[in-house]
């Protein structure tokens, strides 16, 4: 059987809110080492990879590896019934066709349970190699959200260029043009306000803004976001989910015709 308890249930709520616009359905794979998900959006342009480690949960037990086919809009409907301060326990029997979610209020005076129907989903699994990137940029998640939101109102695609001057986001459209440059900045006493640019070589890539904006639905999960760029490869937009794991979004670059 599978059983996982997370006392900070709001994390699970935020994770599903981060995913549900991008991914309709997917297999959450459970194993003794934790929970993971790999899923593409419907146009197969981007990939989301979620890893939640067993030791990040308050309790975790999984006797047998199994995929749990989840419809994320339905998962979200049930998680919306959990209070923000509730503890959430997930339970499933081996080869079950449903996932039980139990919500406990923080003073344990209210307990509710819901069953989510599971689906059988055929999915391909992609091997994502660990690699060095030409540029890695850490910035406040709220800053990333602001940039992609602002630029989406101006254009459809963004040129992201990382140089020793900083990281520049450029777009253009019917309205005109826009450029936002962030410089390396570690002056704040608060680490989450730092912008850290780790540049091995200059790189410039073009991406569809609507996906980058969609990734910012994960903003509530982490104070910082990390962007990783290498020529001709997908950008990685990564949010650390506390001690629990991380969520990474991969988006293929636009290539000139």
């Amino acid at each position: 059987m599978f059983e996982a308890k997370i006392s900070q249930g709001s994390v699970l709520k935020k994770l599903v809110e981060a995913l549900k616009e991008l991914v309709t359905e997917g297999n959450i794979d459970v194993s003794p080492s934790g929970m993971s998900l790999q899923a593409m959006d419907s146009s197969h342009v981007c990939l989301v990879s979620l890893v939640l480690r067993d030791d990040g949960f308050d309790h975790f037990r999984c006797d047998r590896n199994m995929p749990m086919g989840i419809h994320f809009a339905n998962f979200s409907k049930i998680l919306k019934c959990a209070g923000n301060d509730d503890a959430i326990t997930l339970k499933a029997e081996d080869n079950a066709d449903q996932l039980t979610l139990m919500f406990e209020s923080s003073n344990q005076d209210r307990i509710s349970d819901f069953d989510l129907k599971l689906m059988s989903i055929e999915s391909e699994h992609l091997g994502i190699p660990d690699q060095d990137y030409s540029a890695e940029i850490k910035m406040p998640a709220s800053e990333y959200q602001r940039i992609v939101r602002d630029l989406t109102s101006i254009g459809d695609t963004v040129l992201i260029s990382a140089t020793k001057e900083g990281i520049k986001f450029s777009t253009s459209g019917d309205v005109g043009t826009a450029n936002v440059t962030l410089r390396h900045n570690t002056t704040s006493e608060k680490q989450e306000e730092h912008t850290i640019i780790d540049l091995k070589e200059p790189v410039a890539l073009t991406f569809a803004l609507r996906y980058l904006k969609n990734f910012s639905n994960a903003t509530a999960l982490a104070p910082q976001v990390k962007l990783s760029l290498t020529k001709d490869l997908p950008i990685v937009v990564e949010y650390q989910v506390g001690e629990l794991g991380n969520i990474r979004f991969y988006l293929a670059p636009k290539i000139d015709d």
Binding site: G127, T157, P234, L251, A252, K254
Partner: peptide
């Protein structure tokens, strides 16, 4: 503008 390739073109199936 520009072409948009499928994300799966960048990674190997396992």
């Amino acid at each position: 503008g520009g072409k948009q390739r499928s994300i799966s073109a960048f990674f190997k199936q396992t």
